[in-house]
């Protein structure tokens, strides 16, 4: 290809070179706007429908009311579902951290035979669709009489939570200089003291990130809870699924109201999470786990 123009005369750019911007600015913003408009549209229909009286063949409902929130609250036993969701989420986060943190420490610090196999084992629950291991797991839990109970739901939800904590925490541990631990040991600190006074403070950002990511995941994880839960142990999202699935029994506006309550719950968790965790981190753990699999 012939030299086009006079490249030497261009002033050097501080930002990125041109080939990385072959999408014109307007096209980029149209694409993003298109996505966001549709997102707002689907969230908007739910919100509008939850406040509407009757909405058939028009842009907006004929009138506005809030009484479907009361209907939803009463007929779906939302208070119970919210309590179950909070209980499940917090226990799962706690169990995930307690089991996952020591494992992440060892995997970050040590080389030992079979380490790759162990890493693969911890990755599989995340890579395999939850419904595939969820069905045998649910079958077993029902056999052991945990099916339909809160304990069963918690057990099922910890299965992806522990590997998730390990994946998020391992890079955080790797960043901590092992010399600090050695120095503490030289000063005759025992293992528990090293963990409590050296590692835990340095790992706080990682622990926080892992906890919040597991929290988001558990609130939104549908399949496992769906397979294991019974009446009285359903989380909000499973309740919502049954409400949508059996729509027609209850007014549509009540289902929308319930969906809005679910949305508010997740958005509150998300807002708290975004204060501490950057969204690319949510995805970075997935990237890390991919690189481990084929290593």
């Amino acid at each position: 290809m012939a030299m086009t123009g006079t490249p030497t005369r261009r002033r050097p750019r501080r930002s990125l070179p041109r080939a990385l911007r072959f999408v014109p600015s307007w096209l980029f913003w149209i694409a993003i706007a298109f996505f966001v408009v549709n997102l707002l549209g689907l969230v908007g229909t739910v919100v509008v429908s939850s406040f509407g009286t009757e909405w058939f063949d028009s842009w907006l409902p004929q009138g506005w009311t809030t009484h479907y929130y009361a209907t939803a609250w009463g007929s779906f036993q939302l208070a119970d579902a919210l309590i179950v969701t909070v209980e499940v989420a917090f226990v799962v986060v706690a169990v995930g951290l307690v089991l996952g943190t020591p494992a992440a420490y060892v995997l970050a610090r040590k080389q030992f035979p079979g380490k790759k196999l162990l890493m693969l084992g911890f990755l599989l629950p995340i890579m395999v669709p939850p419904i595939t291991y969820g069905i045998p797991l649910a079958t077993l839990l029902y056999k052991l009489h945990f099916g339909g109970t809160l304990t069963g739901v918690i057990i099922a939800n910890t299965v992806p939570a522990v590997p998730f904590v390990i994946l998020v925490l391992t890079p955080f541990v790797e960043q901590i200089d092992p010399k600090i631990e050695s120095a503490a040991r030289m000063c005759s600190a025992n293992t528990w003291q090293i963990f409590r006074r050296i590692l835990a403070p340095l790992m706080t950002p990682g622990l926080l990130a892992a906890a919040l990511l597991v929290l988001i995941q558990t609130v939104a994880l549908f399949e496992l809870t769906f397979l294991v839960s019974g009446p009285g142990s359903q989380t909000l999202i499973v309740d919502l699924y049954y409400a949508v699935f059996a729509s027609g029994i209850r007014p549509e506006q009540a289902i929308s109201a319930m969906a809005v309550i679910y949305m508010l719950t997740t958005l509150i968790v998300l807002i708290i999470a975004l204060r501490y965790v950057s969204p690319t981190q949510i995805v970075a753990q997935a990237k890390g786990n991919e690189e481990e699999t084929d290593a």
Partner: peptide
């Protein structure tokens, strides 16, 4: 943009499905 894009991941598949049921329906906004 990140925050806007993380929202649907957080909302989860069930809620997206419930929203699309109205939004894409024969009398929906689309």
């Amino acid at each position: 943009v990140n925050v806007l894009l993380v929202t649907p991941i957080t909302l989860g598949t069930v809620l997206v499905a419930e929203g699309l049921l109205n939004y894409l329906g024969p009398r929906g906004w689309v």
